[in-house]
């Protein structure tokens, strides 16, 4: 783990939560496109190009209908482009639909990057102290999922020998066989779970309020980045309260005018959006230059956290 991923989970969560908030608050193509560019840049630097390409189709399936549906159902606006089935299609509504599409795409990209950076154990780590029981249930569920998957595979192998199979037979029999396999898994897992519970009890679960073990330490770099993010967020919010960062489409499209206040707000937003990119890029550059200097052979491939390998199975 290196770069932005190696930072304290709270930094990442502040970053993604802030981006999500601004995506939903700000309504301006320049801001949104900057944000998408920053996130894509971050992911490319992290070597996640294939991940972006892989989820592109799904993203478009969700986002494109918004662009199409809006002008069909909203007829506000002053500039009528043409008539479609006796309905006026206005320029404003088309632009509004496109804007919503960009919003959806940015939300999508935020989560794409989030899924790579904030691994479930980091997410859980943040929640463990505020909501210990919910976090514990989630964590235990998280542990059971791969376990149950492996068990299900073994059960399917064995039960295949007694004619219970999801591969052959009519749809009805396949479904009912699948459920027989799940039932075997259920009974077995419930019995075993009791031993888990006994071991929890023997190790003192429920005696007193739990503390949480800190694998992550908030270091100076984290604090500096947090401060930078905070400054950027405050600047952006200030601008939003002043009414900047909003594209006025209705009642009629106003050509955007960049004032110096708006430019200041944009700078603050850029600081916020691009800070992780800077962290990641700096580290990459340091590695490359030091490798060139001292260890010419040390330019190595990417090495992910266990979690990524395990998810992709």
């Amino acid at each position: 783990m290196s770069g932005f991923r190696s930072m304290h989970p709270s930094v990442a969560v502040v970053y993604y939560a802030g981006l999500l908030l601004f995506t939903l608050l700000l309504f301006h193509p320049v801001f949104l496109l900057t944000e998408i560019a920053a996130l894509l840049g971050l992911m490319l630097l992290q070597g996640q190009g294939r991940r972006i390409a892989g989820s592109l189709a799904f993203c478009l399936i969700v986002a494109v209908p918004a662009a199409l549906l809006n002008p069909l159902f909203s007829h506000r606006g002053a500039v009528i482009l043409f008539y479609f089935m006796d309905q006026p299609i206005t320029l404003e509504a088309v632009l509004y639909g496109l804007m919503m599409m960009v919003v959806l795409i940015s939300v999508f990209v935020i989560f794409l990057s989030y899924n790579y950076t904030v691994t479930p154990d980091k997410f859980m780590y943040l929640f463990a102290s505020t909501a210990p029981k919910s976090a514990l249930i989630t964590l235990m569920t998280l542990r059971f999922v791969p376990l149950f998957q492996r068990r299900l595979r073994r059960i399917a192998l064995i039960q295949g020998a007694r004619g219970v199979s999801v591969r052959e037979g009519s749809l009805r029999s396949r479904m009912s066989d699948g459920m027989t396999l799940l039932k075997t898994l259920l009974t077995w897992s419930l019995e075993e779970a009791l031993q888990t519970a006994d071991s929890m009890k023997a190790r003192g679960y429920g005696i007193r309020r739990r503390t949480s073990y800190a694998v992550y330490r908030l270091d100076r770099r984290d604090i500096r980045v947090l401060a930078g993010l905070g400054a950027g967020a405050l600047g952006t919010l200030w601008g939003w309260f002043q009414g900047y960062g909003m594209l006025m489409l209705y009642p009629r499209l106003k050509p955007p005018v960049f004032t110096w206040q708006e430019a200041a707000m944009y700078a603050a937003f850029c600081l916020f959006a691009a800070l992780p990119l800077w962290v990641e890029g700096k580290e990459k550059w340091l590695w490359r230059s030091s490798a060139r200097k001292s260890l010419p052979s040390a330019i190595q491939g990417k090495k992910g956290l266990h979690w990524t390998g395990y998810r992709s199975q």
Partner: peptide, 28 residues
């Protein structure tokens, strides 16, 4: 409410097992 409630380890594990089963059943 869950946070406030006193839950026996066995009940906790039971909930986790059923949630995990539901999650696993989504995969195939």
């Amino acid at each position: 409410r869950l946070e406030r409630r006193k839950l026996e380890p066995r009940e906790l594990v039971l909930l986790a097992v059923l949630a995990a089963l539901a999650a696993v059943s989504r995969i195939p």
